[in-house]
């Protein structure tokens, strides 16, 4: 059995829970038999650091606990890097994807193969806004596809388009593609 565990870090309102769900859906379409996506609910409010989880597996998944040793960590908001060690428990050879304009080589993280992309920049350019604030969850899915190869960009775009209809869906799918193109570990 091959199981991949993903931990999402963001702030309340940034759409981390939706990212976790959309990744699970994309992974299922890409042929993984077992998928799970679940949030960790503390006493959330908009802006507070939040966590969500995705598990994907080549077989049915039985385990139902939280994820302590992720294979991949996705960070929607780089300001969280100053607050918590997002790489805690990251497996040997694990990957960390951060939404930041900085280059991966400039980030000082405790462990992991680091990838970065400027999701906020893409969101502002394409108008991916909720209540006037940039939302980077769909761009992160594109970056995720690039950094891990676990799901295909086309599949990610497909689940985005089925989640949001019309122009909003198209803009988000375009955001995922741009993130896919610029995401880099350099």
């Amino acid at each position: 059995m091959t199981m991949i565990e993903v931990r999402w870090h963001g702030r309340g309102g940034q759409g981390g829970v939706t990212s976790a769900e959309l990744l699970a859906k994309a992974a299922f379409l890409d042929g993984y038999k077992g998928v799970q996506a679940f949030p960790f609910f503390g006493s959330e409010r908009r802006g507070a650091p939040v966590k969500a989880f995705t598990r994907v597996s080549t077989e049915e998944i039985n385990v139902r606990s939280q994820i302590y040793e992720p294979d991949v960590v996705a960070v929607l908001d780089s300001s969280i890097l100053d607050l918590i060690d997002v790489t805690e428990g990251l497996k040997e050879g694990g990957k960390v994807i951060v939404n930041t304009p900085s280059k991966a080589s400039k980030l000082q993280l405790n462990r992991g193969h680091v990838y970065t992309y400027d999701g906020t920049g893409i969101a502002l350019k394409l108008g991916l806004l909720v209540a006037g604030l940039p939302v980077v969850n769909t761009t992160m899915l594109g970056a995720f596809a690039r950094a891990t190869g676990l799901v295909k960009l086309e599949t990610v775009q497909q689940v985005i388009l089925s989640k949001w209809s019309g122009k909003a869906g198209e803009r988000n799918a375009e955001g995922a593609r741009e993130a896919f193109d610029i995401c880099s570990d350099l």
Binding site: G31, G93, K95, H113, G149, L150, V151
Partner: peptide, 24 residues
């Protein structure tokens, strides 16, 4: 129970792609 997966194996494998096609 959750062994680390080498990065080289992270790519969507050919079998996985084939499985997707047949499942469609």
């Amino acid at each position: 129970m959750n062994v680390p997966i080498p990065a080289s194996k992270w790519r969507v494998s050919d079998e996985m792609t084939a499985a997707t096609k047949s499942s469609k």
